[in-house]
Amino acid sequence: MTFKKICTLDDLWEGEMASFEIDGQEVLVVAPEGGEIRAFQGMCPHQDIPLVEGKFDGKTVVCRAHLWQFDACSGKGINPSDCALAQYPVKIEGDHILVDTEGVMPLFAHT
């Protein structure tokens, strides 16, 4: 595994999301309310819209284009439920958030 530092814990507060490019892949990092920091593919599996341009209420990521919704703890689709976001391993070292994109490919859904 090749973890890369992307930001610090001070850069991402509970209930916030941020987007980073890692090895040519757009990665969405979320800090769900009451949960652990997660990293998912940064592009909506529907039509390749950056998810960071959408909304995040601390529990659900919503794409701005067609309002597709994803659970911020699992990446599973809520609406529609037959899709998901690829999830990347996350590691916290001291104050740093690290993500590994190696071997994980973004998922795409029906249109």
Rank of each mutant, 00 (worst) to 15 (best):
V30I: 04
F40H: 12
P106K: 10
G103W: 07
M17H: 14
L51W: 10
D11V: 14
I37P: 09
V90K: 00
L85N: 01
L51I: 03
S81R: 12
F20T: 10
K76R: 04
L9F: 06
A31C: 05
K91V: 12
I97Q: 11
D11S: 13
K76E: 09
F108P: 03
I92W: 05
D71V: 00
V61R: 03
K5A: 06
R38Y: 03
N79H: 07
H96M: 02
R38E: 11
Q69G: 05
G24P: 02
E102W: 02
T60W: 07
K4F: 09
D23P: 03
C63R: 13
I78Y: 04
D10Y: 02
E102T: 00
D48E: 12
P106M: 09
F3K: 08
P45Y: 05
G58N: 05
T2N: 10
A65I: 12
Y88L: 04
G42P: 01
G58Q: 03
G58P: 02
E93P: 00
G75A: 08
D71I: 00
G15S: 15
G34D: 07
G54T: 09
L98D: 06
P45M: 03
D23E: 15
V104T: 15
V61C: 06
G94T: 15
E93K: 03
G42L: 06
F40M: 07
G77E: 05
L12E: 12
M43T: 12
G35F: 01
D71Q: 00
F3M: 07
E21V: 13
E33S: 03
Q25P: 00
S81E: 13
M43D: 15
D57C: 11
L85R: 08
P45N: 04
I6D: 04
C63V: 09
Q87R: 11
I97N: 04
D71F: 00
E53R: 10
R64M: 15
I92K: 10
V61I: 15
C83T: 14
A18C: 04
L107G: 04
Q47K: 14
G35K: 08
Q47R: 15
Q69T: 10
L107M: 13
L12S: 10
G24T: 04
T8E: 03
C63N: 09
C7K: 08
C73D: 15
E26L: 14
P106N: 12
S74E: 05
E16D: 15
V62P: 07
G24Y: 04
Y88S: 06
I6L: 04
T60F: 02
F56Q: 08
D48K: 13
Y88D: 13
G15E: 13
E36P: 01
L28N: 07
A109C: 14
W13Q: 11
I37G: 08
G34A: 02
H96P: 01
I78A: 11
A18K: 15
I6H: 09
D71A: 00
W13I: 05
H96E: 15
L9R: 05
R64I: 15
M17D: 08
G54F: 00
L51T: 11
A86Q: 04
H46R: 01
Q87C: 11
Q87N: 07
S81W: 09
D23Y: 01
I37F: 02
Q87S: 12
F108W: 11
Y88W: 04
I92M: 02
P106G: 13
V104E: 14
E93D: 08
L107W: 02
V99Y: 08
K91R: 12
A84V: 08
G24D: 06
K76N: 13
A72N: 10
E21R: 13
L98Y: 09
D82T: 14
R64W: 06
A39K: 10
